[in-house]
Design a protein around this nucleic acid. Structure first.
Lengths: 154, 154, 154, 154
DNA sequence: TTTT
DNA sequence: TTTT
């Protein structure tokens, strides 16, 4: 009846952008969120939380977020349940985001296969307000992989 | 760095109260939280979210919450990771609650082994404000099962 | 850049439903939200928080919520600033809700000018899922008062 | 019964640190939080939200936060009501924070009377985890102004 | 101005 | 009274 979660953390990898057979974009990434206090051994613990972002906001995440970057994510916690190849019931927790904020410009740790395009310099503070002047900003950047309709949120 | 979730839903079963070897109480229950919209087949979907409540608040949940009751839960999302007997890595999502509100008096669906004690009539609107006049409210009510120290949150 | 608030409390009065000159419905009510702990004098304190709900969700609030009822409100905190007749700058805090849950059926304290229509018995658990079969559910129930365009949220 | 707000925004001024007569530290600052969408005139609007932070967390805010810096604030919305010198009832909204995250290192726009102490170089990512090795970090830095006991949150 |  |  009410389900709201807000996280701030850093991406463990670059976002992965896919498309449903009907062409709906969806981005996946994992956020590393440090726990507020140390555990019994005095170690810092971290929760690695899977994030799913649909539609244009997902494309913006794929375009602007990179491994190591700090982001705020707002959405709802969803428990997806399916059977694996061994017939076991597996439950997957993920946050379906409807709001994502890009919180730093990161240390420009670029390089490697998933670095931002050299021509791309902009790093908008707010993904959502950016809604103009994009023809096909992801061409050549995101990998196009089809995913199952079962992952559709609507 | 920031991790906050707020849920409203109904308990799928009575809470289960256990104690760590050192005597710390911890309650477990599952909250059924309906999704805001119907899926493609026009069905209502529900997320079943595991809740963990430590200390006195956990005891209050065990005392006052029952299957079917409506509750608001506030806390943080934690992903616990462990290896099962087959050596597979299993990830369990659960919400560690630090605030729980009891939101209805429920339809007095009493009866069965885990019904509230006959002498207990009160159903406090707010668990947290209730902090007086309890000697050992759970004696004979809750099952005492030891859990691993690994589950300790501190 | 991110602004999210979630409240649970009781209405101090029935909601007031108005319309902008262009016909947009907007409901106003105040939520009494008890503070989590007593003050220095051992008294319970309460925050009275103004809620604004636009569009169809506002109409549903006007239809189903009444003085004394328990509700969960999710939205964003807005500080409206204007000059009063004495030329003083006044700042008004209000929560613009985009999600409202009706959490009890209340003691059917009906009667008086703003009681629900006698023919209306339903009390939907979730306002948002109710989106069918309403032609003009508030006719004769809500007072039609025009408000300034300045109050428009878009 | 439940009152939770999470904000991300920038400080409009340096925090102001005061002490109650009994020595409790309390920091005040204002967060500028942009609204998610433009208004009818196509202008970006901003809410200026007053934040109050008590105790050690308040001291950390006074030490590390500066005008223009980005912060995440978690707490509860409180409506304080008092009579002004003209005998009018004034209502003040403020967020009492129990968690503050410092989200950027800002462009080291130092200089002026409220710049960080020259000897202080550290900018901890998380205020809360910093709890060691501070004897009196604010001496000579913060202004010591007594405030009324009425502002005490406990 | 205030709710249970 | 306001931040980038």
């Amino acid at each position: 009846m009410l389900n709201r979660i807000i996280l701030i953390g850093r991406l463990t990898q670059d976002p992965e952008l896919r498309y449903t057979p009907s062409g709906t974009p969806v981005a996946h990434f994992t956020l590393a969120v440090d726990r507020p206090r140390l555990n019994q051994m005095g170690e810092r613990e971290t929760d690695f939380i899977n994030i799913v972002v649909w539609q244009k906001l997902g494309e913006l995440c794929a375009q602007y977020l990179r491994k190591g970057r700090l982001a705020a994510v707002e959405g709802r916690l969803q428990i997806r349940s399916y059977e694996n190849r061994e017939g076991q019931r597996v439950r997957v927790a993920e946050v379906v985001a409807d709001n994502v904020r890009f919180l730093d410009r990161a240390g420009d740790r670029e390089g490697g296969p998933s670095a931002p395009p050299a021509s791309g310099s902009g790093w908008p503070e707010e993904a959502r307000t950016r809604s103009t002047g994009m023809d096909d900003p992801f061409e050549g950047d995101a990998t196009r992989i089809d995913i199952s309709e079962d992952d559709l949120p609507f």
